[in-house]
Amino acid sequence: MLKILQHFWSFVLHPSDRKLIAYHSDTYSKVFSTLFLFKVLILAIILPLQYLVQYLDPVFTKKSDTDEQAIFYMISAVVFAPLIEEFIFRYFLKYKRYYRFVISHNTYRKNYRWLLYSSVFLYGLAHLFNFENANLLFYFLGVLLVSSNLVDGLVFSFIRVRLGFVYSWAFYGIWNLFIFSLIGTIILLKNPVTKIHNDNIDLEINVSQFRDTTQALFFVRENSDSLFNLNVRQYPLSQVIDSLYGPNRYQVDDEYIDIEMRSAKGYSKDSLMNLLKEDFTIEPNIP
């Protein structure tokens, strides 16, 4: 394991497009497992930094208002997205014969370091577009937000070059499967996000990883600034906020949510917003 990590570090410092020669049948599986564990360790280190960024300058994402059923989402995330991204960002990291019409092999190798680093940088930069922020501080802290993607770029590039394109595609897909399984487990463990039962209100809020529009429901009974009944299933939180408080008044780090709320006397919208802010990232939208 240590030798594999040393070889990976040597690749990061002194990149080359040399293929790994396997002397043992289990070499590739050892590379896979070692780098997978390495990425898990890096994820554990980077996540606190990303939470720090969220504290300093909240980041926002937007959920689709269409179906995101689990089976289709997983096929896309595990098969098609890795294939497309590997082709765009890493296919060219191995010299091909037809490249000679554009660049000689010698020139390619002399400039390989910058080719690889540019690939990793562009891969990380592309993931900044997953967020909706547009302020200066966000872009200043952006390197922390995509730090895990930069590490991904180095690891995937190493596997693509040393083992081959199919192996980096497979590794990327397996990693995505691991991440989405981890997210799904966390969501199951933290549900319900909010559960309150008292004389003023009965409230339960759950989050979902995917959306099924055949189950979608949005019902609200209100009077001025008071809510008496709110029943939401399979809606993005941003749409719920826009419906209750007016469009574009708030920025939301989005989730698919289910809300069941009843209040015989009426519950103020401001009080509900305060409850939502305890568990979700919601900030006033500054024009």
Results as ranks from 00 to 15, higher is better:
Ile103Lys: 14
Asp225Pro: 06
Glu278Leu: 12
Phe72Val: 09
Leu154Pro: 03
Ile42Gln: 01
Ile282Ser: 07
Ala134Gly: 11
Ala77Thr: 05
Pro15Asp: 00
Pro58Met: 08
Leu43Lys: 02
Leu275Pro: 04
Asn149Pro: 02
Ala70Asn: 07
Thr194Phe: 07
Phe180Arg: 02
His7Cys: 06
Val166Asn: 11
Gln54His: 02
Gln50Pro: 01
Tyr139Asp: 06
Gly153Ile: 00
Pro58Ile: 05
Gly124Ser: 02
Gln239Trp: 13
Ile286Tyr: 11
Leu203Gln: 02
Asn133Thr: 06
Ser119Asp: 03
Ala77Tyr: 04
Leu20Asp: 07
Trp169Gln: 03
Asp199Ser: 14
Ile186Tyr: 12
Ile183Asp: 11
Ile201Gln: 07
Tyr235Asp: 07
Ala264Tyr: 12
Phe72Trp: 15
Leu150Phe: 06
Thr66Ile: 14
Glu204Leu: 07
Asp258Thr: 11
Leu47Arg: 06
Gly124Leu: 01
His14Thr: 13
Glu260Pro: 01
Val240Pro: 01
Tyr55Trp: 13
Phe210Arg: 04
Gly142Asn: 03
Val161Ile: 13
Arg162Asp: 00
Asp17Val: 04
Arg100Trp: 08
Leu136Gln: 14
Ser119Lys: 03
Ser33Gly: 05
Gln69Gly: 10
Met273Asp: 06
Trp9Glu: 02
Trp175Glu: 04
Met74Ala: 15
Phe129Leu: 13
Leu182Tyr: 11
Thr61Val: 13
Ile179Asn: 06
Phe219Gly: 09
Lys94Leu: 15
Ile84Cys: 12
Phe280His: 03
Arg100Ile: 11
Val207Lys: 07
His24Val: 12
Gln6Ile: 09
Leu35Ser: 00
Phe92Ser: 14
Ile84Lys: 08
Gln209Met: 15
Gly246Arg: 05
Ser10Phe: 06
His127Lys: 01
Val161Asp: 01
Tyr245Glu: 07
Gly246Trp: 04
Arg162Asn: 04
Asn285Tyr: 13
Val240Gly: 02
Tyr123Gln: 04
Ile174Pro: 00
Leu150Ile: 08
Phe101Asn: 12
Asn248Gly: 08
His7Thr: 10
Tyr235Arg: 10
Asp26Glu: 14
Gly173Asn: 04
Lys39Gly: 00
Thr27Gln: 10
Ser29Phe: 09
